[in-house]
Simulated scan of single mutants.
Amino acid sequence: MTVKSVRRWKTPLLVVAVWLVFYLLNPMSEASNYEMDFLTLLAGASISLLLNAVLEELFYRKWLQSRLEAALGIWPAICVSAVLWALWHTGIQGSGGLIDSTAHALVLHGIMGLFLGYFWAKYRNIWLLIFMHGLMNFPMYLITMWFER
């Protein structure tokens, strides 16, 4: 393994570790209660990982953002792909009125889209993006339920 390829994994892993600590210990995160058994929840989380984390990162970061970078530059590409990714989440996760759902998605998913877009532009490591996205979607209840016993 070359020094460059080692740095390609070690440097972003530090960023992922810091992000994970802040994400998991965030006092503003909402605890979710799922009314289903463990295996059903685990199966749903696995399907979500494949459909959401893998496909969204491949499309929005690797495919779309990379092409927009060539046409617009790095930061405009990050911003456009983040906004489009956020608007996509309005359609699939919106629960209120159109304006409220759009504002919520732009703030929540737009900020995460900026972070993931910057991470892609800087490190070009799709596997770490998929890992982070998968953790964002992963029901923390599957982890915390073991501590409630």
Rank of each mutant, 00 (worst) to 15 (best):
L116V: 03
Y123H: 05
L14N: 08
P139S: 04
T102A: 15
N33K: 15
H133E: 00
M136W: 00
L106P: 06
H109P: 04
M132C: 04
R7T: 05
G110S: 05
S48M: 02
I126P: 00
V54Y: 02
G97L: 09
G96P: 07
E56I: 02
A71W: 11
Y23D: 01
H104G: 13
L64M: 15
L39K: 12
S66W: 05
K122S: 08
Q65L: 10
T11W: 12
W146C: 09
L50V: 11
A43T: 15
I78F: 05
G113H: 02
L13R: 00
G110Q: 04
E148Y: 06
K4Y: 12
W75E: 14
S66G: 15
I126V: 11
L39W: 14
L72T: 08
L116Y: 04
W9S: 10
W9D: 08
A71G: 09
L129H: 01
L72P: 05
A17L: 12
N33G: 14
M136I: 04
L25Y: 03
T90H: 06
R124N: 08
M132Y: 02
V3K: 11
N137H: 04
F59I: 13
T144G: 00
F138Q: 00
P139H: 01
L116H: 01
N125D: 02
Y118A: 13
S95N: 12
R124P: 04
W9I: 14
R8N: 12
Y23R: 01
S5Q: 13
A53N: 02
K122D: 04
L128V: 03
H104Y: 15
F38H: 11
I78P: 08
W120T: 03
R149Q: 14
V16L: 09
L49V: 01
M28R: 12
A70I: 09
A71N: 12
G96Q: 13
